[in-house]
Design a protein around this nucleic acid. Structure first.
Length: 184
DNA sequence: GTACTGATTTTCT
DNA sequence: GAAAATCAGTACC
């Protein structure tokens, strides 16, 4: 499951002068047969990226003020994605503090809208390949850093999703157990 | 500490 | 025209 694999990976937004990096500590999966998934209703202009190849960023605007960041996780044409809900800030923290308007480390990235704001993610980054080292937005595999911060299956907790109107009691949310940086 | 409400705009019906 | 995968602020224990 891609949602689980992404836990512990590193998300980086690379810009000219300010690069921001965080570790992914919380994700949610949205599968093709799930009414809550954006891809469920079929391909539209907004969610076209979800129907593309794996590893492309899907960024969308919600509630008039927030962005959410996803990664296409299914095969081409499947419309599946993984929502990244929370990060642990690692680099460019001063930049994040400025963008978020707070100095509280825990409040920088502990929510979908917050992490997008902290990393400066907007629709301009919609559709970029995150596994391409020339991309402005990248995800680095946790395996590369495994020695430094091992993540064992036991550390991964599974719960129901959060804030989804078309609620289904499916346990498709994953986060690192006991990590202070998850949204709750 | 928890609970409720308003903000604000893109997207689809 | 209504809904939406949210957040921050206010009110009240």
């Amino acid at each position: 499951m891609v949602a689980r694999k992404l836990l512990g990976c590193y998300l980086a937004h690379i810009e000219e002068k300010q690069t921001t990096v965080g570790r992914i500590v919380e994700t949610e999966a949205y599968l093709s047969d799930d009414p809550a998934a954006h891809g469920f209703v079929g391909k539209t202009k907004r969610n076209a990226v979800l129907f593309g190849p794996v590893g492309h960023a899907y960024v969308y605007f919600i509630y008039g003020m927030h962005f959410c960041f996803n990664v296409a996780s299914g095969k081409e044409g499947s419309g599946e994605g993984v929502l990244v809900r929370a990060l642990e800030p690692l680099e460019g923290i001063a930049v994040m503090e400025r963008r978020r308007g707070t100095r509280d480390l825990i409040n920088l990235c502990n929510g979908p809208g917050k992490l997008a704001q902290a990393l400066g993610i907007t629709r301009a980054l919609d559709g970029v390949p995150v596994f391409d080292d020339k991309s402005p937005l990248q995800i680095w595999s946790a395996d590369t850093f495994a020695a430094a911060s091992p993540i064992r299956p036991a550390q991964i907790a599974r719960t129901t999703r959060i804030g989804v109107a078309k609620a289904q009691e499916l346990e498709l949310r994953f986060h690192l157990k006991g990590n202070r940086f998850v949204s709750r």
